[in-house]
Amino acid sequence: MPVQVETLSLLNAVQALALAIMLWVGTHGDGGRGLLAIRLRAGALGLEAAGYALLAMQAFIPPAGLLMGGNALNLLAQMMVVVSIRLLVGKPLRLVAAGAIALIGWGGVAWLGIVHPDYRLRVLWGSVAIIGNVLLNIDALRGGCRDSGTRARCVLLWVYLLALALVLWRNGALWLGVNPPDQIATPSPVNVFYILLSGMQPLFASIGFLLLYNEILRRELHDLARVDPLTGVANRRAIGEASDRMLDEARAWRGSVGVLLVDADYFKEVNDRFGHDGGDKVLQSLVGCIQRILRADDIVGRVGGEEFLVLSPGVDAVGVAVLAERIRATVANSALRIDDQDVHLTVSIGTAVAGPGHWDMTALRRRADAALYAAKRAGRNRVMAAVQDDDPLPATTQPA
């Protein structure tokens, strides 16, 4: 029994509508860009379902209404898909470009369908609009197959490459085939095959979209678990992972890593004077001072209440002492205004250097910590360097 275009269209409409409902109902959150992207994708599926429903009910709809309405729904859905994907992966939305493609595509289809009817040219014009939207999606997803950390992006990229191939095949069949159909609703192998595959494409694209959403969500959770919520720098876990990575690289290349422990002086007095909210602002200001001094490869992390660990790859004992002194001087010469009062903060810093024979981060931290406490005992607001035998010696000093 031959397959009817109307039957396939009705099945596609039911499938797209079911996917739209599942996406909308099955996801929830706090309204971030990921959830908004899911909502846009669900809305696009709803419009696609409406477009397939129109084609399924073509016997009850005037040809002009089917042509104008069906293409309007399809092009609007494609525009929403472009925006949703680009929103999800954090790329510029290209809303103006997607809207222009939809408007120009719909106008050309209307002209070639009503004013100057030509089915093959109309399909070609509409296909150019589809290709434009697909290329916007591919642009947002490109590079996904080279990044081993984002397989879902690669899957979705292949879905749109196959969609591009389907559009090209349809136009080739219409222009080069024998007895091509003269309307989308005309029963023919070309139309049946095209509607069948184009109806499956939203399913595959939605699966890829959900996989990408899940992948991005897991990555964000991974990052959040490694960020100190108050200061925005690496937390103890993240700085531990970074130190292991730096030490491995330095050992492989016979390099070195500078280790600095930075501790705010008399911080309890800040909390007593301004409360914990004021103390939090002071810590945030301290982090800002440290970050202004660091190079791109340096990392700072919070390892205690007011204690921070700085890792600086490729520096020797002299270099780490210079870096520590710059941090100390910058903090000492900076002021933060809280409750109409200036707060002056100083820091004490202990340093150590990882190099040949000294690759144990626990031992390095212990040496830097001993140097830090020596700086505290010596009067604070100064830098002390740990020597190889763990006896801290002053690198630079500054009167408290």
Rank of each mutant, 00 (worst) to 15 (best):
V227K: 13
V123P: 00
L217M: 11
G199S: 05
L162E: 03
S312K: 07
K91L: 05
Q58S: 13
V282H: 01
A97G: 00
L211E: 07
M246C: 07
T330P: 02
L311Y: 09
Y160L: 04
R337I: 15
R170Q: 10
P394M: 01
A173I: 00
R245I: 07
G29E: 13
L76P: 00
R146M: 05
L8S: 01
A363I: 12
R170M: 07
R236C: 06
L168E: 04
T186L: 06
D244M: 05
H116W: 09
H28G: 15
Q4N: 09
A329S: 13
R120E: 04
D139E: 12
L73D: 03
A102D: 05
P180V: 12
V282D: 00
I130P: 04
L247F: 07
M79T: 13
L217F: 09
L35G: 00
V25E: 10
I85Q: 06
A16R: 07
L103A: 15
W111K: 02
L95M: 12
H116I: 06
A110D: 05
L87H: 01
M68A: 14
T186P: 10
G232W: 15
A165Y: 01
L221D: 05
L10G: 10
A238F: 07
V347Y: 01
L311N: 09
P187M: 03
G90T: 03
W106L: 15
G304A: 03
A370G: 02
A163D: 04
P187F: 08
G255M: 14
R94Y: 10
A324V: 08
A374H: 15
R251H: 14
R382A: 03
G275K: 02
T397I: 08
Y119N: 02
Q4A: 14
V155L: 11
S312D: 05
D342A: 15
R328T: 01
P394K: 02
Q201K: 09
A264G: 08
A386M: 01
V259W: 13
V159Q: 05
A72Y: 08
R237N: 07
C289P: 05
W359G: 03
T27R: 15
R366K: 12
A329P: 00
D223L: 09
L364E: 10
V262R: 04
L40N: 02
N171Q: 11
S285M: 14
Q58C: 09
P187G: 09
R33P: 04
P189M: 04
A335Q: 13
I85V: 15
L174D: 06
A264R: 08
D118I: 00
G26W: 02
V96F: 11
D223C: 00
S84W: 13
R292G: 14
A56P: 01
R142A: 13
S348P: 06
A129Q: 11
E220K: 08
M80V: 11
L164C: 04
L112K: 09
A335F: 10
Y373D: 08
Q388T: 11
E325V: 03
Y266H: 14
V287N: 06
H276E: 04
F308A: 01
V190T: 13
G126L: 02
V159H: 06
V282K: 01
L73T: 06
A18Y: 03
